[in-house]
Structure formats: structure tokens, C-alpha cells
Simulated scan of single mutants.
Amino acid sequence: MRGKASWCFSYCSNILVMAAPRSIIIDIGKQRHEENAKEDSPTSKKPTGAKLDGRSLLSHWELAVAVSVFLLFCIGLFCVYSTMPAAEYGKIKLPRSISDLRVLKDNLATYAKDYRGQFILGYCSTYIFMQTFMIPGTIFMSLLAGALFGVIKGLVLVVVNATAGASCCYCLSKLIGKPLVNWLWPEKLRFFQAEIAKRREKLLNYMLFLRITPTLPNTFINLASPMVDIPFNVFFLATLIGLIPASYITVRAGLALGDLKSIKDLYDFKTLTVLFLIGSVSILPTILKRKRTYE
């Protein structure tokens, strides 16, 4: 039991180490670098103790909510892992490369077969946690679903978990995400807001297009949707349906992990073209309506 508790703590720590999404870290680093460069300029005026127009990024209340929700998820994750049957814990860790994923798949194949229910619960909890807090690595989880459960079951598992995690991220962003989104992606947010304003009548079609195609990052869509007044029902439905094509490609690739060299191989020019063609079908009614209006 002591070994299990130790592993649970180790595994949760492994997830937390990855909890800062790379894209956000890069964006924050760039903005801080630009801010420091402006401050170091001899012509710039240096405000005394000012942070983001005189205030910190998050208020005390917002910070308390963020920490509380994060800790609540961590406790739930720890409880799920602590109830799972014994295994060779040292070999189970979140993959960070295709080679790590192959090793993990080999170690989990028998375990997932013998304890299917417990394993799926642990898998779902991990996936939703990572998606909610924008932790990189969900694409490896999708590949793992295909490798362990096949295309149909793996696709259902991935789409349901990705939608649940994105919905949690939407709700969390609605509470505390506005200053973060405004700080990280101000120009992208203004563009998104303008596009949404032009497509209010066919909002579901446009959201489906964004989900199917890689036009905007899913992380940005999850966080920014509440900021531009996208209703939750539209967000949920577009996410549930729109993630199917890309998830199918990823899950299907999980069946042939031995042939996959890197993540970049998943989305080559041909695959991206197919996704854009599928996405174009979703906005076809909007295009036709505009054409009839102009005529």
C-alpha cells in the first residue's frame, strides 16, 4: 500500500510538472521580454510598481479560485489512482515522445485488458485534467486510446474526454480567464471577436469549421469562447462534433505506433487538406446565403 501511495504521488507529480503549457510559456516569455526591452529603453517612462495597468494579472479572488479548482482536480486524480489495482508503477508515466508511448503501450496492454473499468476511469480522469488545464500531451493520450482500444472505442473515448475537458476549460475561463486571454493573445482575441460578430446567425457552422480545421489553436478557442459570448450549448456541440475528424486520424494512427516516427507525421499536407475540405462543408450554408444576398 505504501508503494502504491508513493507511485500515486509520483505519477501526479509527473502530470503537474507538465502543467504549464508550452505555448503559454512561450507567449509569456515573449511578452515579458518585450516589456523588459521597453522598460530598458532610455526614452520609455518606467511606471513605479505597475503591473498590467496598475494591477496584477489575476485578482486575489481569481487566483484563489484557480488554485482551489486545480487542487480539487489534483485530489480527485490522486483518489482515482489510489484505488486502481497494483501494477509495475515505475514503468507507468506520461509519455513525452513516440518512443515513450510505445514503451507505455507495451506496459499497459495487459493491465488495460485485466482491469478495463479501472483503467478507463484513470485514463478519463487524466485526459480531462490535462485538457482542462491545457497540459500538453493529450495527443499522446489519443494515440494510446487507439493502440489499446481500437478505432471505434478509442474514438468515442477520445472525443468524449476531449469535449468534457474543453467544457471544463470553458467554464473555468468564464470565471477567471478574461485577464489571462487579454494579456496573452490581445490581437488574436480582437480578431476572434470580430469574426464571431460577423457570423452570429451561423455561429455553430463557424465553430465547427474552427474545430475541424487548425485555423485557431484549440487551447485559444477553449479559453476565448466565453470572452466573445459564444453560448455554451453551441461551444459544446461544435466541440463534440468538430473534434471527430482530427481525433479519428490520431486514434487510427495509434494502431500503427511502430510506423510512426514523430507527431508531425500525423498531419501532413494531404491530411490538412482533407480537414480543411471537411471544415469547408460546415460553412458552405453561410457562403451560399451571402452569395444569394449579394445577388
Results as ranks from 00 to 15, higher is better:
Lys202Pro: 00
Lys202Trp: 09
Lys202Ile: 12
Lys202Leu: 13
Lys202Gln: 14
Leu203Asn: 08
Leu203Asp: 12
Leu203Ala: 09
Leu203Trp: 06
Leu203Pro: 00
Leu203Arg: 05
Leu203Gly: 04
Leu204Phe: 14
Leu204Lys: 02
Asn205Glu: 15
Asn205Pro: 00
Tyr206Trp: 14
Tyr206Val: 12
Met207Ile: 11
Met207Leu: 13
Leu208Asn: 06
Phe209Tyr: 15
Phe209Glu: 11
Phe209Ala: 10
Phe209Lys: 03
Leu210Val: 09
Leu210Cys: 11
Leu210Thr: 04
Leu210Ser: 03
Leu210His: 04
Arg211Thr: 10
Arg211Ile: 13
Ile212Pro: 01
Ile212Asp: 03
Thr213Pro: 01
Pro214Met: 14
Pro214His: 08
Thr215Trp: 12
Thr215Gln: 07
Leu216Gly: 03
Leu216Gln: 07
Leu216Ser: 07
Asn218Arg: 02
Asn218His: 08
Asn218Gly: 11
Thr219Pro: 00
Thr219Ile: 15
Thr219Tyr: 07
Phe220Ser: 04
Phe220Met: 13
Phe220Glu: 09
Phe220Asp: 08
Ile221Arg: 00
Asn222Ala: 13
Asn222Arg: 03
Asn222Leu: 12
Asn222Thr: 14
Leu223Phe: 06
Leu223Cys: 10
Leu223Ser: 05
Leu223Gln: 07
Leu223Ala: 13
Leu223His: 00
Ala224Ser: 12
Ala224Gln: 08
Ala224Val: 13
Ala224Gly: 05
Ala224Tyr: 06
Ser225Arg: 01
Ser225Cys: 13
Pro226Asn: 06
Pro226Leu: 10
Met227Lys: 00
Met227Ser: 06
Met227Tyr: 03
Val228Trp: 01
Val228Asp: 09
Asp229Gly: 00
Ile230Gly: 03
Ile230Met: 05
Ile230His: 03
Phe232Val: 08
Phe232Ile: 13
Asn233Pro: 00
Asn233Met: 12
Val234Gln: 10
Phe235Glu: 09
Phe236Gly: 02
Phe236Asp: 05
Phe236Val: 10
Leu237Asn: 02
Leu237Gly: 00
Leu237Gln: 03
Leu237Tyr: 03
Ala238Gln: 04
Ala238Lys: 01
Ala238Gly: 04
Ala238Glu: 07
Ala238Ser: 15
Thr239Cys: 12
Thr239Glu: 08
Thr239Asp: 10
Thr239Phe: 07
Leu240Val: 05
Leu240Glu: 12
Leu240Tyr: 03
Ile241Ala: 08
Ile241Gly: 01
Ile241Thr: 09
Leu243Pro: 00
Leu243Ser: 06
Ile244Cys: 02
Ile244Glu: 06
Pro245Gly: 05
Pro245Glu: 14
Pro245Asp: 13
Ala246Lys: 02
Ala246Cys: 04
Ser247Lys: 02
Ser247Val: 07
Ser247Glu: 08
Ser247Pro: 02
Tyr248Ile: 11
Ile249Ala: 03
Ile249Gly: 01
Ile249Phe: 11
Thr250Val: 15
